[in-house]
Design a protein around this nucleic acid. Structure first.
Lengths: 208, 208, 208, 208
DNA sequence: CATGAATGAGCATTCATTCAT
DNA sequence: GATGAATGAATGCTCATTCAT
């Protein structure tokens, strides 16, 4: 389920050669760096090219337009995240509900609040800044995947989840984490929040 | 509690006369209409004036700049929403936890998914589009108020809430509703979602 | 020669009444104050009216347009200055050339560098800021008057001046003072400059 | 001495290629032409681009903003003028005071009143129109340089000049020429004025 | 493939002036 | 006379995108 399906039509050429792969990575890194250091307002195609160290024209050899760059970055992150969620659920197979919830909350807290700059930067750009609705369907894919994992991972002491229930469980969790970033909440990243999220998820997922 | 900290410094002149009040309302309505019908990308000051039926200059007689218009709209909505939440909690004082949760979820579902165009439009603009961090602190005010109400409204069968717990309860609820808008989820506005949200809130708020 | 000829068609109504006179003075004072305190860029008709304490409309009851306000102010200053020059030359009639030059230089140093804010402000506005060529003919009137006074005031030890000579003498003196303001020269207002200007004028005006 | 402190930070990119050099020259010429033919009020960035025959964007590829264009033009003229003054003083080394003064006055009369349109245009723009104090420090540099040359060029029959004396000598001369432009004086450019300026400078510079 | 100069539609904002009340 | 809300043309500037070299 960790789909490589997206990037294909986002990239004008498949990065077969080393050079091309390097270029795309440079574009992503420059983009993330600019957002992080100068703010999303300063994110212009010319600036990306400048920071990446080549010409604007080259950018357009790899991406149809500016939006495609962000979309590709996000899509890449989505793939990583989905793969990590899959691994997490597989790894915790057979553990108690409490252990699995703890593992999930820890992973998401880490992802949202503690990962290295690039990923955090992207997350903030997606959540708070972009007038690009298309980005949202990509992030929703992660939440849908999480919901699917909830439904597929019946565990002792967990109530059977309907699709809506899985929807609410996934959005309740991720929505809270997202709010922390959007509001720049002081709770973001704290142990207190981690404990409370565990409790919330247990309450939501436990059989009555 | 519904704040008289009105848009005082958002508006350049206080609308003393009927004419002025009408003008401000027209600006708000035109802004909402444009966002709704043409997308936030097409929201330009000249377009607002054009739709509202007067000159750009007039816009700037009432608002310092474009951002101030959105901020004033949002701030106004925030005040209304906080007032309505206060009324709701006051009105349901003495009812059971289940009844109060039902009332709250109904109110928020209505607000997020069914209210008249203007409010929905604003909600979407805030949540999904704007690169205006300032807007966020306004919306966070509503969520903070809700968290405060949770703490202040001890009800039979409800567990005592710490500040983090209230934070998670408010963001879990509103974050889920917001996701519905952002993703344009098919669950948005459905009875199934309403029921599930009630269940989630009961799970979160009930004493163990 | 101290001409009241100008202001007549600059003012839409002759300030016969006390009220009108006060209004015009208020406009002048507000204008000077704004230039002084906020810079000429902030000098807008609305701001003038605001500072003066009445409405923009009233401004236009007294002056055809913005330019007319500055023109009238300058013209007023010109009349004062010409009258003072006349008085100076009359007062020093019969004195030695050196004494008269000293008196003239002292008067102009005072006027350009030491007078109270309003006049200095106006001088700077005229000399350095205004894209209003019409203002220049007004200030040239002062220099022409000075040239005429040079020619008319033959004094012992002074060479007979042709019109060009008088032109050069007046512009050499005033041009140097003006440069001091424009460049914000450190020499502006110093005793050293005063002494040197005296020497220059003596050199220019003395018989060989 | 003609300064390599070129417009380095006035220009966004240094014109390395032929195309670029041509573009910058075109910008200067169009700017001068507009000021000359339509007045400085009509000098807009879009108009400059239109006259130069390319798009506004191009303007901003070479200059940070409108002010920078004027500043660069003036700065360029300043460098030329200082170089010419240096050459003039070097060339006339060893000549009599009278000959050197004649050469200087001739050069400045030519520069202020007879040079080709571009330079005259710039001179007028600097002296009479712009609310740009920054322009003034550039022009003051020429006058300061002239003052320094006066002090450094002791000649037979010339009195030793103190810094103030050199200041007054340079401003007296240039101030008079400037007045001719500002007032659009009929004396501007005449032989009579030339002769009188020579006499004034001899009077100022000669030993008693 | 890469370049980067050129494009130009489009935007937010200002402010002298008018005119209905 | 006085008011001040309304006007709207005009301005400086940006930036995603193109295409000749």
């Amino acid at each position: 389920m960790a789909g490589n399906e997206q990037p294909i039509d986002l990239m004008l050429k498949s990065p077969k050669q080393q050079r091309a792969k390097l270029t795309v990575r440079l574009i992503f890194e420059s983009t993330a760096q600019i957002i992080l250091r100068e703010g999303i307002d300063r994110l212009t195609t010319n600036r990306i090219a400048e920071v990446a160290g080549f010409s604007v024209g080259t950018l357009y050899q790899y991406f149809r337009n500016k939006e495609a760059i962000l979309l590709a970055m996000v899509s890449h992150e989505k793939d990583l995240m989905i793969a990590e969620l899959d691994a997490l659920f597989a790894r915790t197979e057979g553990q108690t509900l409490s252990e699995r919830v703890t593992a999930l909350v820890d992973f998401l807290m880490q992802t949202f609040y503690q990962r290295r700059a690039i990923r955090r930067t992207i997350a903030r750009a997606i959540f708070s800044q972009q007038p690009l609705p298309s980005l949202y369907s990509v992030i929703a894919a992660v939440e849908n995947h999480l919901a699917a994992l909830f439904m597929a991972s019946q565990t002792d002491g967990m109530r059977p989840l309907t699709p809506v229930a899985a929807y609410v469980a996934s959005r309740g969790l991720i929505g809270t984490l997202r709010a922390g970033i959007l509001e720049q909440s002081p709770w973001a990243g704290t142990e207190a929040l981690r404990a409370e999220l565990r409790r919330m998820m247990m309450a939501i997922l436990s059989a009555d």
